[in-house]
Amino acid sequence: MRILVLGGTAFLSAETARQAVAAGHDVTCFARGTSTTPPDGATWVRGDRALGAAAYAELDGGWDAVVEVSRDPVQAGEALDVLGAVAAHWTFVSSCSVYADHSIPGADEAAELLEPLPAGQSGTPETYGESKSAIEQMTLAVVGEKAHIVRAGLISGPGDGTDRYGYWPARFAAGPGPVLVPDIPEAATQIIDVRDLAVWILQSAGGGLTGTYNALGDVVRFEDYLVESQRAAGTGAGDGVAHDVVRAEEKWLVENGIEYWAGPDSLPLWLPGDHDGFQARSNRAARERGMVLRPWQETLAATLEDERSRGLDRERKAGLSRETEQRLVALWRGRQT
């Protein structure tokens, strides 16, 4: 196939480009390349999407497949206007953040969506779900009969720069001392390996799959994920260096300024009580259309290896600093006496 990746330098788009090159496809990556470059073997067309429709002038068209990962409706709309007519298949990587209700476990693709961002309005981190919803709407309007909309959940594996899924195995691997965790053993976690997602994107493009699908991993209990994180880090029960796991009540964590999910002073993968379905959506439709998932333990091990390579004690985008964790453990234990 002749494939155009709108991106190709970061995480999912880079992995998709790498796999496409390895499979022998003719791959072009359209990217600025300000921090990294596309994979070897791909043609790199430098372009800045902030310049508008004129940015695509060097792309000659005739694409068997286009892969779009944008979160900005303005830029995504310009790409559709310029390239939609010259692409045989169009993949848009959306997000399960487009859903309006995150409280129902097992919800599928028919669930209600957020209102799309108004036409002409650029996206912001605060309007991520509305932005993706708007791009979905535009994609269907322009290339609906050849559109594959991929509603991804949390993506992890090698190269994950969000610091969320890797926080816990990295924390256990970082060294001794009490580890503060939210007391949510039965909570759901749900990630998809970036490598598996890229495989399915390319497979679907080659087979002409269209429609909208949740691209998600299988549900794993938070406690099982923690236990496997300790085992992978070599700090599980029976390893001789098991950590002292301190389980704090959710209400207390909130009262002490700890954030849900991501960001500074957060406990990653922990979610508010009205988000029981956020990491527990149905992936059945994608599974039935060829999406294959590797064992989640394999993804966790690869994520930890990547964490080690980047430095376990580095400053993180998500999670607690060691100082904050120690302070909170002391506070929690103090209230227990």
Rank of each mutant, 00 (worst) to 15 (best):
K146E: 01
A119S: 10
E126P: 08
L114G: 00
L209R: 09
W200A: 02
P176A: 14
T210E: 10
P176Y: 01
G123W: 01
V181E: 13
A134E: 00
V86G: 03
E186W: 13
T162S: 13
P118C: 07
P178R: 03
E186R: 15
P116H: 15
G207M: 03
P158N: 14
D193H: 10
P125M: 01
E112N: 05
P182D: 11
E130T: 04
I149E: 07
Y165K: 00
G211M: 06
L197K: 02
Q121A: 08
A141T: 05
A174K: 05
I184V: 13
E112G: 07
T189K: 05
Q121W: 11
G166E: 09
L197A: 14
S156D: 14
S103I: 09
S97G: 04
A134K: 03
D163N: 11
L114A: 00
Q137I: 00
P116V: 14
R164S: 07
A100S: 09
A134F: 05
G211W: 11
Y128C: 07
D163G: 04
D183C: 06
A110L: 04
E112K: 11
E186D: 13
L209K: 05
G157N: 06
E109K: 01
R151A: 03
P118M: 13
L197T: 09
G106Q: 14
A187S: 12
G157P: 04
A170E: 04
R195T: 15
V82T: 10
G208D: 10
A134Q: 03
V143E: 05
A119Y: 09
V86M: 08
V98H: 09
G123M: 00
G177I: 07
P158A: 15
H102A: 09
F92W: 10
E115A: 10
T139S: 08
I135N: 07
L197I: 02
G157I: 06
D101Q: 10
Y99A: 02
Y167M: 06
G123D: 02
T189S: 11
W168G: 02
G123P: 05
V150P: 06
S131M: 08
S94W: 12
V150A: 11
A111I: 00
G123C: 02
L140I: 07
D108M: 00
A85R: 15
P182V: 14
R171A: 04
G208K: 11
S95C: 08
T189H: 06
H148L: 14
W168V: 04
P182N: 13
E115H: 05
A100I: 10
L154M: 06
K146H: 06
H89C: 03
A141S: 10
A85G: 11
A111V: 02
Q190R: 13
P178H: 02
L197D: 03
E126H: 12
P185G: 14
T91L: 12
L209E: 14
V194E: 12
Q190P: 15
G161K: 11
D101N: 09
I191F: 13
V143D: 03
G106V: 14
A187H: 03
K146Q: 00
A119K: 13
G84V: 12
D183K: 03
L180V: 11
G144V: 03
S133R: 15
E145H: 12
T210D: 08
A88G: 08
A111Q: 06
I104F: 00
P125H: 05
G206N: 11
T139M: 07
P182C: 14
Y165I: 11
T162H: 09
S95L: 12
G106A: 08
S97W: 10
D81P: 02
I201R: 01
V86D: 04
D160V: 01
